[in-house]
Computed example of a mutant assay.
Amino acid sequence: MKQLLVFVLFSALFCWLMFSPIYKHVLVIRQALLQQEVDYMLEIGASGRYGYIDREMVDDSRGRLAEYGFTSALLEYEIESTSGADSGNSMLPLPRGTGIRLRISYPYENLLDIDRLIGLARPSEDARISGRGMKMSEYVPD
């Protein structure tokens, strides 16, 4: 009986040791992809040509992230300006010096379920990984 118990416990620990780094790697890659997308969108949206991040840019971003395996419906975008003005209005771009803040978040899904094998609690259902950033608008009206 002891040998069976030791085998079961050792098997669970062995599975966790083998597969946990893979899941952690996927988690780190997802967070890095979110941060890369935030940086890209801020670079484009805050440029001298635009001065905003509109719905079309967000839809394009959802498509790019979906190519990497994200479920586009689960992505949440929070876009705001430091002045309180609408940061998504292409008819009224934010003037130079106004900050644009962007946060893209995504749920953990079931990535950390394997941690339960060794007694670690998984994140709550509403916990999310995210990328965030802020860039000053460079738009100057003609």
Results as ranks from 00 to 15, higher is better:
residue 3 Q to Y: 14
residue 3 Q to C: 12
residue 4 L to C: 07
residue 4 L to M: 08
residue 8 V to C: 11
residue 10 F to H: 03
residue 11 S to V: 09
residue 12 A to I: 07
residue 13 L to G: 10
residue 13 L to T: 08
residue 14 F to Y: 10
residue 14 F to G: 05
residue 16 W to Y: 15
residue 16 W to G: 11
residue 19 F to N: 05
residue 21 P to M: 15
residue 23 Y to E: 06
residue 24 K to Y: 06
residue 25 H to F: 15
residue 25 H to M: 15
residue 27 L to H: 06
residue 29 I to D: 02
residue 30 R to M: 14
residue 32 A to R: 15
residue 32 A to V: 14
residue 32 A to W: 08
residue 33 L to P: 03
residue 33 L to G: 04
residue 34 L to G: 13
residue 35 Q to S: 10
residue 37 E to N: 06
residue 37 E to H: 09
residue 37 E to I: 05
residue 40 Y to L: 14
residue 40 Y to S: 15
residue 40 Y to F: 15
residue 42 L to Y: 08
residue 42 L to T: 05
residue 42 L to N: 04
residue 43 E to N: 05
residue 45 G to F: 06
residue 45 G to I: 07
residue 45 G to E: 02
residue 46 A to Y: 03
residue 47 S to P: 08
residue 48 G to F: 04
residue 50 Y to Q: 13
residue 51 G to R: 09
residue 52 Y to V: 12
residue 52 Y to K: 14
residue 53 I to D: 00
residue 53 I to F: 01
residue 53 I to C: 01
residue 54 D to C: 07
residue 54 D to I: 08
residue 55 R to D: 12
residue 57 M to C: 13
residue 60 D to S: 15
residue 61 S to K: 06
residue 61 S to L: 05
residue 61 S to C: 04
residue 63 G to A: 05
residue 65 L to C: 07
residue 66 A to M: 03
residue 66 A to G: 03
residue 66 A to K: 07
residue 68 Y to E: 05
residue 70 F to Y: 01
residue 71 T to F: 02
residue 74 L to F: 13
residue 74 L to C: 11
residue 75 L to G: 02
residue 77 Y to A: 14
residue 77 Y to D: 07
residue 78 E to N: 11
residue 79 I to P: 00
residue 84 G to V: 02
residue 85 A to H: 03
residue 86 D to H: 12
residue 87 S to E: 03
residue 87 S to G: 11
residue 89 N to F: 02
residue 91 M to T: 14
residue 93 P to G: 05
residue 94 L to K: 06
residue 96 R to E: 06
residue 97 G to Y: 10
residue 97 G to M: 12
residue 98 T to S: 04
residue 98 T to D: 03
residue 100 I to M: 07
residue 100 I to H: 05
residue 102 L to Y: 12
residue 108 Y to Q: 06
residue 110 N to Y: 09
residue 113 D to K: 07
residue 113 D to H: 06
residue 113 D to P: 02
residue 114 I to A: 12
residue 115 D to G: 03
residue 116 R to P: 00
residue 117 L to R: 13
residue 118 I to P: 00
residue 119 G to L: 02
residue 122 R to M: 12
residue 122 R to G: 09
residue 123 P to F: 13
residue 123 P to Y: 11
residue 125 E to Q: 10
residue 125 E to H: 12
residue 126 D to E: 08
residue 130 S to Y: 15
residue 131 G to C: 11
residue 131 G to F: 10
residue 132 R to G: 03
residue 132 R to N: 01
residue 133 G to S: 00
residue 133 G to K: 03
residue 135 K to W: 02
residue 136 M to H: 01
residue 137 S to G: 05
residue 137 S to T: 10
